[in-house]
Design a protein around this nucleic acid. Structure first.
Lengths: 354, 354
DNA sequence: CTTTTTTGCACAATCGATGGTGCAATGACT
DNA sequence: AGTCATTGCACCATCGATTGTGCAAAAAAG
């Protein structure tokens, strides 16, 4: 409580105050004092002094000396959608519960940015890194390896480090099947009735497209190439693809698979340009779960990826230090329309809730 | 490119390689070499060596010595909703563009956690801190001040540091007015037709409730206290409030104001328990913008808070070092139903978009 | 009352970068 | 040639913590 605006207390200050040496103070404050055979009384004395002066360790100094920082990084492509923001939320909670400090950064799907950001994290001696949805996981891997940083890929796999990803193939199968079955309620379904929008040439998109096509072939007997419309990940591009389809066909496909919630925002932009009623009968499957997306005015089947399981598995991999780079699949979950799942926020206590 | 898995190069390594002293190397690599009158040829030589060896500065060492880190912190209550995740996205971009490194952390609306997290950030000598939506801004302020850390409150104001917040009163007025006007399309509206759900006893909620009540009084002549249902911020509690209302009234209010998108998720949970058609005619106003929320099967008016302007203003305040703690209001924007606004993601380039 | 063991702690090097200071070499000028 | 200013850089203390090592004093053993 002493000293507002004063410099922060250091072990040297406490050393003078307590009459012990800095090393003793250090040992007491970092918990290694038993190993160092410090008398319990001494430890207590120093601990009390530290508390009284609001001592907190200078983590940069500690990190410099010990070349470990207690930081665990999560590299995201973007924050601004429910899949990644809930992943960040889960990550924070998990890292905190392990007594470490979470650091989340985004790199905007830019391979160069990804490497730079990771370099920066390395400069802070982070202890572990979760690389989520990286455009160039192997590029990041190289940077990490050079620095001896343990890391794991989440969501998009790399070839050089272990990865934990959704079973995109299976998820896509579930989703495609669900929208086709739903469409069949209104009569027979032809291959040209079912489209896929969004995604690009990354592993997840490829697997989802593969699952989509496989189910279409087995349920509908065919899958014309025209039904696959990879638009990239931007809402604007996706909206344009819907608009183009609409212009040439006079309607949207009867049912379609949207590659991610970001692409689904593209659908919103399209819808905003057109009267409400025109699209009351479309059926949508979206690979990603967004609670509001689930309640749109037409049936939206969604896939909820289990980011909690992915992060947890990621930690397990980092601890196991497996040598060969393996890829673990986490099963995603099909979410029927109008479903409000609980999320990471639900574990928070809501103080003063009235 | 040399050395995979080797230790990172330091200025000492480069010092040996270049035949210069460490301080010269340091000066060259941190850009202060002109001030230090280093020959250009020497600088070039060292720079080339550094590039060749992939040198990156150890930021912990630099931070320790200079007691500045280049880090700028953003403290969030949670990640997992569009308001805060888009704030994080904007923050990242802005900080990056200033050549600093963004660090985003969440504290789960827990005052104790808030202080602890900030202590940790301080231990890393962060240069500036944005405190967004803190439950106890003044508590955090105390911690910051003790460490001489420049900081600014965003979204929820404190009394001891400057703040940048939405004009919640005005936003609530706009929103309330919009839903009342919309409701009047179907006939006269009584005070008991319009409710407010969500929020708790924080500044934002209070201001919103004040705006809500003021508009109701002026447009409808009254505002019974029963129409205000502060449920806290959790979806579960909010859902319970809707359920309770429904049990006792046999329906939902004709129109209602929902305090935040998190509370709006509570509405989803309620809806999921009930048949679709029952609620086709409700009118909702939500204080927060979520693109999917805007397209729900009933009219949803939303308020989009301008987090970009808030962050930008926050930087301006930090730079100006204003002494008296002032509070700046940023005007939010009323978003009519079925509107897809573009967000921070739209400025990203989407490479490989096919 | 020695010798050995254990206890309790102090010393000092170290992590990597920064920045004040000092000093030799070079050039400019009288 | 002697003085002075300038250029170009090296030296060294410093930031705050960690950790291997050494050495007294106290306790135990002989």
């Amino acid at each position: 409580m002493t000293g507002i605006g004063k410099k922060k207390a250091t072990i040297y200050d406490l050393s003078v105050l307590s009459g012990s040496s800095p090393s003793t103070v250090s040992a007491v404050l970092n918990g290694s004092w038993r190993k160092r055979r410090i008398k319990e009384a001494t430890a207590k004395l120093i601990q009390n002094l530290a508390d009284a002066h609001g001592y907190t360790a200078n983590l940069q100094a500690r990190g410099l000396r010990s070349s470990r920082s207690g930081l665990v990084g999560l590299l995201l492509p973007v924050y601004d959608n429910r899949y990644f923001s809930s992943m960040a939320q889960t990550f924070e909670a998990l890292v905190r519960s392990r007594g470490q400090c979470p650091v989340v950064v985004s790199a905007c799907r830019d391979p160069e940015e990804e490497r730079q950001v990771v370099e920066t994290l390395i400069s802070y001696s982070i202890d572990e890194l979760f690389i989520a949805g990286a455009t160039d996981p192997d590029g990041v891997h190289t940077v990490c390896e050079k620095a001896g940083l343990r890391h794991v890929n989440i969501d998009l796999p790399g070839t050089k480090a272990s990865s934990v990803i959704s079973d995109n193939f299976e998820g896509a199968r579930l989703l495609t099947q669900a929208i086709i079955e739903h469409a069949r309620r209104d009569g027979p379904v032809a291959p040209e009735d079912i489209y896929l929008f969004g995604g690009r040439n990354d592993h997840a998109s490829r697997e989802r497209i593969r699952g989509f096509r496989e189910v279409k072939r087995s349920m509908l007997g065919a899958d014309p190439d025209a039904c696959i419309q990879p638009t990239g990940y931007s809402p604007a591009m996706t909206a344009r693809a819907f608009e183009a389809f609409y212009q040439s066909h006079g309607k949207l496909p009867r049912a379609f698979f949207v590659n991610s919630s970001i692409n689904l925002e593209g659908l919103l932009r399209f819808l905003a340009q057109h009267p409400h009623e025109t699209f009351a009968d479309i059926i949508v499957g979206c690979y990603d779960y967004d609670p509001f997306g689930s309640f749109l005015p037409f049936p939206v089947f969604m896939i909820r990826q289990d980011s909690e399981a992915m992060i947890a598995k990621g930690f397990a991999i980092l601890e196991a230090k497996r040598e060969p780079a393996v890829t673990h699949l986490i099963q995603p979950m099909l979410v029927p329309p109008r479903t409000a799942l609980s999320g990471p926020l639900d574990t928070l206590k809501d103080v003063d809730g009235g």
